[in-house]
Computed example of a mutant assay.
Amino acid sequence: METREYTVEAEEAGMRIDAFLAGRCSPELSRARIQSLIRAGDVTVGGVDTAAAKRRVKEGEAVALRVPAPAEPEPEPEDIPLTIVFEDADLVVVDKPAGLVVHPGPGNWSGTLVNALLHYCGEELSGINGVKRPGIVHRLDKDTSGLLVIAKTDMAHRSLAEQFAAHGSDGRMVRSYRAIVWGTPVPAVGRIETMLGRSSSDRLKRDVVAATQPDARQAITDYRILAGAGRAAGAEASLVECRLATGRTHQIRVHMAHIGHPLIGDVVYASGFASKAKALEEPARTTVEAFRRQALHAAELGFVHPVTGDAKRFSSDLPTDMRELAAALGIALSGNQQP
């Protein structure tokens, strides 16, 4: 709720209050919108509410206008194709393509996974996260592809949320990702353990920070090289498996950049490696420069079914764009992309 305060000038004296405010707020707020705010009790004169749009203002009067924050629209069902990996009465597992936003938000009020799920599942989604995130237990970045589980019932949502919170420490949850990174990590198998928090230079980024930073959270990523380093025109790249022991925002992207091997295509955390792409020979250069997302795929997802207690495990092959990227960089997959 924003409060705006105005003082009536001599030339404005005698105007209807709705006309006075419309003049002060034009073109942002229309006169009709001002009148609705007056009727709602969001306009005061000298600290006293007024509900009469025809009231005349006097010189020197203090007029305050309360403007509620814009109401966020509720997501609508949209017929967006989904790749369903598994489904029963309690949950559904989907293979999300790169470019699909998980839930609505500023700039993405439509065309999201939630819009697609509302069309596909109707009202069969957990309501724990509210109308804007029905059934959503976890998420992937817009440009990360791969496996997601969505809860249809509140009971399933609570059970899955507990498993995600444990990050596999109790043996129930398994999550692994495939990433194509610049260079060859050393050692070939390792653990990255840092504190992550908001970047001091960009509020949309995460960074390795000191433990004393107020929002610092422990982050642990285990990685191993799956395919021996490829070499295309002098630039090395590797296919790496990453397993999460914690689940922080952008964790894999930040951690791999932190050890000097950022994800190819990551414009946020690998911007310093643009020269590597430009140094490649064709056709590798064209392929890498045309790759418009971080090379990250959620390839494996395992959990205990909330109702049956069965251990469920699902896998997703590397998508076509990452296969083509690997081939262009000389990475021989040889089945290593499989979970």
Rank of each mutant, 00 (worst) to 15 (best):
R178H: 15
L196T: 04
V149D: 12
V137L: 08
V181G: 06
G122F: 05
G183F: 02
D143M: 10
R139I: 02
V186P: 04
L125D: 10
L196S: 06
P214W: 08
L147S: 10
A227M: 07
S126P: 09
E124Q: 13
G190R: 03
L148C: 02
N108R: 13
H157S: 12
F164K: 07
K205Q: 11
V149Q: 09
V209D: 07
R139Y: 03
A156W: 04
V137P: 04
R172W: 11
L148E: 09
V114Q: 00
P185C: 04
V181W: 01
L125F: 03
S159T: 09
T184G: 12
H138W: 06
G127M: 06
G168N: 13
I136Q: 12
R206A: 05
Y223G: 10
Q218D: 12
V102M: 05
N108L: 06
H167W: 10
F164V: 05
L196A: 07
A219D: 11
G127Q: 08
R217I: 02
T112I: 06
G183K: 06
L125A: 02
V174H: 12
W182K: 00
T153Q: 05
G135S: 01
G135K: 00
G183N: 12
K132A: 15
P134K: 00
Y223W: 06
A211L: 10
D207M: 01
M155V: 14
L113S: 01
I220K: 04
G105T: 11
S145N: 11
D222A: 03
R175K: 14
G146A: 12
R172M: 14
L204K: 15
D215P: 09
L147T: 08
S145E: 10
H103T: 01
Y223V: 05
S176F: 00
A219Q: 01
I180H: 00
Y120L: 07
A151S: 00
